[in-house]
Every structure is written in structure tokens, then in C-alpha cells.
Amino acid sequence: MLNCNEVTHLASDHLDKSLNWKESFSLRMHIAMCKHCKRFIHHLRLTRLCVHGMNNNLASPDDVKHVLDNLPDTNKP
């Protein structure tokens, strides 16, 4: 039987489905009975969904210009 501290360490592997069936089973048994760990995993999942929504940050125009200006002349678009 896993304790709460152990569950916190396995939480990401649980979200990424990297646990073996035995670990996965123990973890599911635990969170079925423990509201704190259930909340921990729920919040970790929400956190991951948040950052997934942040993938639209573009490079600064200066950085882009720097890259394009430094292409070798023969390759310049």
C-alpha cells in the first residue's frame, strides 16, 4: 500500500501513463480513498493543461531578425 508521500512522487508518471500495472493499481486504490492525494493529482493535471495552453509565445522580432541576418549570404532567402 502506498502512502501519501509516495503517491506525490508517482503523480507525474501516473499522468504520463509511465507506471507499471502494479504501481498504477496501488495509486488508483489510494486516491479512491484519499481526498488530499486525489486533489493533488487533480491540480497537477490542471497545471499541465494550463501550460499546454501557453504554446503560442513567439520569438521577439529582434531575435528573428538576428537569425535571418546571419544566414550565410549564399543561403539568404
Binding site: N57, L58, A59, D63, V67, L68
Partner: peptide
């Protein structure tokens, strides 16, 4: 556009 999207 590729540079803008992936440089960071």
C-alpha cells in the same frame, strides 16, 4: 514564421 515559432 518557422523561426518565430521555434526560436525560443
Amino acid at each position: 514564421r518557422l523561426v518565430e515559432k521555434y526560436n525560443r
